[in-house]
Design a binder for these strands. Structure first.
Length: 588
RNA sequence: GCGCCCAUAGCUCAACCGGACAGAGCAACGGCCUUCUAAGCCGUGGGUUGCAGGUUCGAGUCCUGCUGGGCGCGCCA
């Protein structure tokens, strides 16, 4: 319908240009908007206002001319000029109601499209270090990334979801050392746990199960472990030096093989936990990409060679640098340290190169807001590697600031004081958590009061939407149980939709017509919150309708028409909810 | 100090490419269950869109400068 109207407008525009009212070279972007107010019709165009200046007439005069030049169309019942010069289009009832039949026929496919034309696209999100369980901060990125991926899939992109596993580097060694020290405690050794080690309970849990399995096999006397180790911070030393020395000591005492086993034990246990956690949160991935694999496969070296042969690196102070400032970054970035070890950023460059070589038309990074500083350097690397910058997209997810009532909850993985995603799910449920996370724009700061989410979970808007869905199911059950009312006759219902003329029903037809556009817009803007808002409005329209009008009317034609409309609403609610990972219950 | 993000009703937030009277929910107040689920509906009150300029037919939206908040600025990961 929208396309039809745009064509009509273009024809009118062309005619006015031929008549000389508008210059031949005037090519405004034709805009057709859904109106907010039904009094303004179904669609509105601002073409006359845009043209007023070049036409040297006032907007309403131009609008008059456009309307006169507009070809007639059977489904356009009225065209009005309103306000400062809007052209309002009124669409025929049959054009609005036919959507119901389309929805019932297409089912779960309604709203989906092939605008993405099957192009390969990657969405990388969460990618939290596997050094501990996911916390509520990761939850927002998980819910957002999964929803964006679902949206892009729905508009026809070939989506690959990926989690970048930071399984290399110092943090993982700190985890391994933490695990070993906890294991030693489980063996009965007495020691002071380092201030900079991972203190979470989960480390002790893994350590105890390790001890239960292997006994004292990896045990060393506490005195030997801490012999000549530099002092920890509480003792006036340097906590970083302290933990690094303990890592080195673990490697020496255990030997490479045993150290690796403990390292892998920690990594695998946590990774498995994260995978299960996300899966229960209805967040799944096609790929779990190992950072470690980049160095073992030689990808890092290859990427560095590419940068160097392109003339984008230089040696300074014994280290290898990337001249990212040549591409607008604040400062150049170190790739290989003076001790010969490549930096985390070198892995990032190799990973980026690897991604872009995998044939994705577009690669989307979903970052926590604290990573915004990475964008310029990754964009610099993208260009230096010879890739098209347009293939790279970034979205930042602001933190959810946690409160327990009035008190702000401080979050720190290292200290072990955080609210886990799992706790949140147990508290408020997956549906409410998924919905709550994406109902706000991702770049908007969000306050998340745990007490409120828990104590007032019944007031969570997600139930409002689910309830609308359940209500339709309930009406159907009622019909089936009825001995007096005839069974649903879809054909008859569809044939009498235009008999539904209340404001409530018109609002619903209109809302249902919007859905495909909302989905498209939300997908290309990476904004799942638009789906959440739309569903809230659709549910609201339905609840209003439900309270005002009896669906199970005595008149079979009216009843079947209303049932068809209700079924269409239910279908669209279910389609939208599935995009944001929320279930559509049949009863509540 | 430099950079990125943000500021809308008492609170949490919407507002499609710059459009019509800035909208919801919560909180407050008043109504609606012998009738398809009251996790619902209807009604009332609530605003100088942080401040000051600018761009234009038109600005919450774009530009500049301020104020206030978040985050980032390692040969850490």
């Amino acid at each position: 319908m929208k396309d039809t109207l745009l064509t009509l407008l273009q024809q009118a525009l062309t005619q006015l240009q031929q008549e000389g009212m508008l210059p031949e070279d005037f090519q405004p972007q034709l805009v057709l908007e859904r109106t907010r107010d039904p009094a303004h019709g179904d669609f509105a165009s601002n073409l006359a206002m845009l043209s007023a200046k070049v036409a040297k007439r006032n907007p309403r005069e131009v609008a008059q001319a456009i309307v006169q030049a507009l070809p007639a169309h059977p489904q356009v019942t009225k065209v009005e000029i309103a306000g400062p010069g809007f052209i309002n289009f009124f669409i025929s009832d049959s054009a609005l109601t036919e959507v119901v039949g389309r929805i019932l026929q297409q089912g779960a496919a309604f709203g989906r499209s092939d605008l993405g034309a099957g192009q390969k696209m990657q969405v990388e999100f969460v990618s939290a270090n596997p050094t501990g369980p996911l916390h509520v901060g990761h939850g927002r990125g998980a819910a957002y990334g999964a929803s964006v991926a679902a949206l892009l899939d729905a508009v026809g992109f070939d989506i690959e979801r990926e989690y970048y596993v930071n399984d290399a580097g110092r943090q993982m060694n700190i985890l391994a050392a933490s695990l070993w020290l906890r294991y030693l405690q489980a063996c009965g050794e007495t020691l002071v746990f380092p201030s900079n080690a991972y203190k979470g309970d989960y480390v002790q849990t893994y350590a105890q199960s390790l001890h239960a399995r292997v006994g004292d096999q990896y045990r060393h006397a506490s005195a030997a472990v801490f012999k000549e180790i530099p002092a920890d911070e509480p003792q006036g030393g340097d906590k970083e030096a302290h933990i690094d020395a303990l890592i080195a000591r673990a490697q020496t005492l255990l030997g490479a093989e045993a150290y690796q086993e403990i390292f892998n034990l920690g990594l695998n246990a946590i990774l498995q936990d994260i995978q299960q956690d996300l899966s229960e949160f209805r967040v799944t991935y096609e790929n779990w990409f190992s950072e470690l694999s980049l160095s073992t496969s030689g990808a890092i070296q290859t990427a560095l060679d590419k940068l160097t042969s392109g003339g984008h690196t230089y040696q300074a102070e014994g280290a290898l640098w990337f001249r990212s400032t040549a591409f607008g970054d604040d400062k150049d970035r170190c790739l290989v340290r003076d001790n010969g070890i490549s930096t985390y950023f070198a892995s990032d460059v190799a990973y980026l190169d690897h991604k872009l070589q995998r044939g994705f038309a577009k690669v989307l990074y979903v970052f926590g807001a604290d990573h915004h500083g990475y964008i310029p350097r990754l964009q610099a690397a993208c260009q230096a590697l010879g890739h098209d910058l347009a293939r790279l997209d970034f979205r930042l997810v602001q933190f959810a600031i946690l409160y327990r009532g009035q008190e702000r909850v401080q979050m720190s993985t290292r200290s072990g004081s955080f609210v886990t995603l799992r706790e949140l799910r147990d508290d408020v449920g997956t549906d409410a958590a998924r919905y709550y996370y994406v109902m706000r724009k991702a770049d908007q700061h969000m306050d998340f009061d745990l007490e409120l989410a828990k104590s007032q979970s019944k007031d969570n808007p997600v139930y409002y939407i689910q309830y609308a869905h359940a209500r339709v199911c309930s009406v159907l059950r009622k019909l089936e149980a009825s001995e007096r009312l005839s069974a649903l006759d879809t054909q008859q219902g569809l044939a009498h939709l235009t008999a539904l003329e209340s404001e409530y029903e018109k609002n619903l037809f209109s809302a249902l017509n919007h859905y495909p556009e909302v989905l498209t817009r939300a997908a290309f803007a990476y904004e799942p919150h638009q789906i959440a808002n739309y569903l809230q409005e659709l549910a609201s329209d339905f609840h209003t309708y439900y309270n005002a009008v009896k669906v199970l009317d005595e008149d079979a034609q009216v009843r079947n028409a209303r049932l068809c409309l209700s079924l269409a609403v239910r279908q669209v609610l279910a389609n939208g909810l599935s995009l944001i990972g929320v279930e559509a219950p049949e009863e509540m």
